[in-house]
Nucleic acid binder design. Structure first.
Length: 323
DNA sequence: TTTGCATGCAAAG
DNA sequence: TTTGCCTGCAAAC
């Protein structure tokens, strides 16, 4: 499932290609027929992401709220903007640049692409360019809960965990329940709110990072990686984490999220050099410090990485580096 | 070719 | 606490 970075990227597609245009809304699958009728034909006026939730506003004041859950996805077809994805599709991702950083490599790729083009783009846990369009709009594939259609762009939603039409007050109520998002809230206020909340709780930090009312947008990958990067034991109660480390966690999340939004990838080993970062770009298996590396040697100390379930989700960590 | 898991959440029980 | 979502992918046959 997409973590916060991809939801922000999806919202950006809607901001670029749907906002300001009348949108035909339908539910090919049928399960969203009533909601579709409430929105059909209206001009989209806003597209925003908060954490893992996305909100699309229409001119008559109603909003479409979508949460993708673990395997929801948006498929775009027609005129859309495919930036970092192009790089990943044509193998230019591994190019080095003079600075020799992972992010720098992506930035080089981004500088020459990013214009809208007529294509198909799948935005889910990973982004993927698909075979070019044969006709427009394309026939719905699978269980399309919602189809949003302008004269030149089509967006199909499948498998969401949440998809509703809400009024402005309801949207605000949903957002109010969410913890701070580094790309939505002012940096100072957000850091204060996060820090204050964490330092008040006896709950293990590994659970707090996944709690969307504490901080928005972190999922299972970013959770494991943030804890490793902080060299923090996942079982540490929030209130026992040194305040400076809590603040550092927030700043690190903010940094990783921005990298994720810019590149479309969950790059958590930024700063790697040479062959190591090329491997990280080429293979998901080489992309992370601890995520999905059960039993493999820690990249820092060589100790086998542990996996345990906490809160029903798998947690990966190094018992020595994160003692 | 089939099976099982997955980068979540909400509703049902 | 369990189930639904009902997809995509990789590992296992």
């Amino acid at each position: 499932m997409p973590e916060g970075h991809s939801v922000h990227r999806i919202a950006r597609q809607f901001a670029l290609h749907f906002v300001g245009k009348p949108v035909a809304v339908s539910s090919p699958q049928g399960r969203f027929a009533e909601g579709a009728r409430m929105l059909d034909g209206h001009v989209m006026t806003d597209a925003r992401a908060v954490g893992k939730q996305m909100f699309l506003e229409f001119e008559h004041g109603l909003w479409l709220r979508v949460h993708l859950g673990i395997y929801g996805a948006w498929d775009f077809a027609g005129d859309i903007t495919a930036d970092a994805t192009i790089a990943s599709a044509n193998g230019r991702m591994g190019q080095t640049n003079q600075r020799g950083t992972v992010v720098g490599a992506f930035e080089d790729s981004l500088s020459s692409i990013g214009a809208p083009r007529r294509t198909r783009l799948r935005m889910a846990e990973q982004e993927k360019l698909e075979a070019p369009l044969e006709s427009f709009p394309p026939d719905p594939v699978g269980a399309v809960r919602v189809r949003l259609l302008t004269d030149v762009t089509c967006a199909d939603l499948r498998g969401p965990t949440a998809c509703d039409v809400l009024g402005p007050e309801e949207v605000q109520a949903v957002i109010d329940k969410l913890g701070p998002d580094p790309l939505v809230d002012s940096p100072k206020k957000a850091e204060e709110r996060f820090t204050e909340t964490v330092l008040r709780k006896p709950t293990p930090i590994a659970l707090l990072l996944m709690d969307q009312s504490v901080v928005s947008g972190i999922g299972n990958v970013y959770r494991a990686e943030l804890l490793f990067r902080a060299r923090l034991n996942p079982h540490t109660p929030g209130r026992d984490v040194p305040e400076e480390l809590v603040r550092a966690l927030w700043k690190d999340w903010s940094k990783l999220l921005k990298i994720g939004v810019r590149t479309g990838q969950m790059l958590t080993m930024d700063g790697l050099r040479g062959k190591a970062y090329e491997a990280a770009l080429a293979s998901r298996a080489d992309r992370h410090w601890v995520y999905h590396r059960t039993g493999l040697p820690c990249r820092v100390c060589g100790t086998p990485i542990l996996m345990e379930e906490i809160g029903g989700r798998k947690l990966y960590w190094c018992p020595v580096c994160q003692a």
